[in-house]
Amino acid sequence: MITITDLYKSYPAQNARAQTVHAVNGVDLHVKEGEIFGVVGASGAGKSTLIRCVNLLERPTSGTITIDGQDLTKLSDAELRHARQGIGMIFQHFNLLSSRTVKQNVEFGLEIMGMSRAARAARAEEILDLVGLADRSSAYPSQLSGGQKQRVGIARALAGNPKVLLSDEATSALDPQTTDSILQLLKDLNRKLGLTILLITHEMEVVKRICDSVGLIDEGRIVESGSVIDLLNTPGSRVAHALFPLGEGTGSPGNTTIEIMFAGDVVERPVVSMLSRDYKLDISILGAAVETIGDRRVGRLRLELPGNIEANAAPVARLRESGLFLEVLTPAEVVAQ
């Protein structure tokens, strides 16, 4: 649905001593139709620049953006404005017009599309109902809570029936509970309307809650991307470690520390008791995390097995055979995280 190819965006140096900033530095990304794709990264990694390039609020230095088969970078100004009507966007600070009521805010995009007054009113009512704000349609944004404001933002973005929604840190200004309800709303809309969502966030919680796929951005590059489940099952994945931080518990020298990642039904299997029973091992659990991601239960488990890796070859092989993704860590690696 969204294909980003070889995208670069640099900001020229503002003065002689400054250097050119390569905010987006060669990004390739594909967002499938109907999925929720999250881009995560630290502050300054280039997330905002990337998402603003997607609807060309920011002109990329080079590269192409294809949405629904249309290369946006090749469009004229008028064509681009038309294309943007099919790409909704929501913002961290909501960006609602303070001079307009909730309903008038929602109608704004429809006015731009040239819809008649009656059709606009009907559509606004419908979409406000969908986001659960039908009763506040004549309020002004200043009279709403943060979560309600974001609902208006979502309604405004979706009023024109876009296929794609871009979300620039939509929950970062909200408290955890409100964040939860907004994420749930996005997930519902994604399912109900078949809406494709590209969101950026610095919160792993958001990825955990609603993303099907995720890309990790670092210094303007996507350094890891794929479906959340696949990345969780990828040894050494930074995304997986960030999703399930297990702390720094290392095993003692001479022992073997392993990390197991599981997804789906494997979680239910009694791994630890199987090892201790079949191999007579004294296992210490150094860290564990089990969570529901999407509709699946996934988790990570860090275990310490007595003896070095050679001594544990058999149990490790047994775990691998049973379909678990497993990583053997040296103590140094554990500390490095």
């Binding site: 609807n55 943007r84 731009i112």
Partner: peptide
């Protein structure tokens, strides 16, 4: 931000 929002709506 308001101008950006308007731009994003076309």
């Amino acid at each position: 931000g308001l101008i950006e929002a308007a731009k994003s709506l076309g």
